[in-house]
């Protein structure tokens, strides 16, 4: 039985991955930096920035899946420590969850060979750095698969399901016209999870680093996705939103909300009464004509994605269960 350590096990992908792998005869050690609200079987608390702790944990497993999210240090330095600790622990295989953000502002048909663009923002920079540490690990004889998913939606996705739903309900998103013409590059969380399991089964040579984009090829443009969410939650008729409104919301109103959130948290208050901020990066993404080409993984491993309709239904069902 293959023994797998999952870092970031309480996150959106990590959480579903733990359950899925456990059901499929993997021995899973779920690790996260904090305590859990709901207990997970075989859970450990692990500081991914602590080299010694990481090395100890890694010596016990055949593979590690890196689903860590967080600030730029947890992502960038975390990956460096992971690579070094893994090397010291006898080179277990690493499955690294990267992102399409590594391509930054690239547009058009983006394949795994498209150059990185770390200048696009702190997140892109951190994720590019993380992948470079993975490369270093491979160069030193390690085995790595980096998955670069698009927007991971489906059950449990705040970013791509409940957040847009809230913004649609308050008519701060809607029909964005040409500002919503970018591809959504959606991928169902369970597709990511299935891809990771396939990744664990690929036999790599020492020194190999495979990179795969993950996005459902039938993902619509953002306008369509936003309308589909709006209509399923009754946030209709949707409004035509101008570029000016998006700009004012993301650059003036949302930063104010963000400040209130931070202050409220510091004061120990709940932030759920505050409206959802609309970050400028999201507005930029809706307008970015990037088509994340996922052919390579689909072809190499006969992988078929959940259809857009089914993914949407899953997302909506989850959304409704949250209300």
């Amino acid at each position: 039985m293959m023994k797998v350590l999952i870092l970031g096990a309480t996150g959106h992908v990590g959480n579903r991955l733990c359950k899925y792998l456990s059901q499929h005869k993997y021995q899973v050690i779920a690790a996260s930096r904090g305590r859990l609200k709901t207990p997970i079987h075989d859970h450990i608390i692990l500081d991914t920035l602590n080299f010694e702790a990481m090395r100890t944990a890694l010596t016990q497993v055949d593979a590690v899946v890196n689903c860590v999210a967080g600030d730029k240090y947890s992502i960038g330095q975390g990956a460096e420590i992971l690579a070094n600790a893994a090397k010291a622990a006898g080179n277990p295989m690493i499955i690294h969850l990267s992102t399409m953000s590594v391509y930054g502002g690239n547009e058009g048909n983006v394949t795994e060979n498209t150059p990185f663009d770390p200048s696009y923002g702190w997140y892109a920079a951190a994720k590019c750095e993380a992948e470079s540490h993975m490369q270093t690990y491979a160069d030193a004889g390690g085995r790595v698969i980096s998955f670069r998913p698009g927007c991971v939606h489906g059950p449990g996705s705040h970013l791509w399901v409940s957040r847009p739903a809230q913004l649609l309900k308050s008519y701060r998103l809607g029909d964005l016209g040409d500002a919503g013409d970018g591809w959504s590059n959606l991928v169902h969380v369970d597709d990511v999870v299935r891809a990771i399991k396939i990744g664990l089964e690929i036999s790599l040579q020492p020194g190999e680093h495979k990179k795969y984009n993950l996005a459902a090829p039938d993902s619509p443009r953002w306008n369509q996705y936003l309308f589909d969410i709006a209509s399923s939650i009754g946030a209709t008729p949707i409004k035509r939103i101008s570029r000016l409104q998006l700009k004012l919301d993301s650059k003036l109103w949302s930063p104010a909300i963000k400040v209130c959130q931070i202050v409220s948290r510091k004061m120990g208050l709940k932030v759920s009464f505050l409206p959802e901020p609309l970050p400028p990066s999201l507005v930029k993404l809706f307008d970015q004509h990037i088509f994340l080409n996922s052919d390579e993984f689909s072809k190499a491993h006969l992988f078929s994605y959940t259809t857009y309709t089914d993914s949407l239904n899953d997302s909506i069902q989850w959304l409704k269960s949250q209300l």
Binding site: D175, A230, S231, T236, P237, I238, K239, R240
Partner: peptide, 9 residues
């Protein structure tokens, strides 16, 4: 006069 459909039309 006009009615507005769910897509805002």
């Amino acid at each position: 006069g006009y009615e507005v459909s769910p897509e805002g039309i």
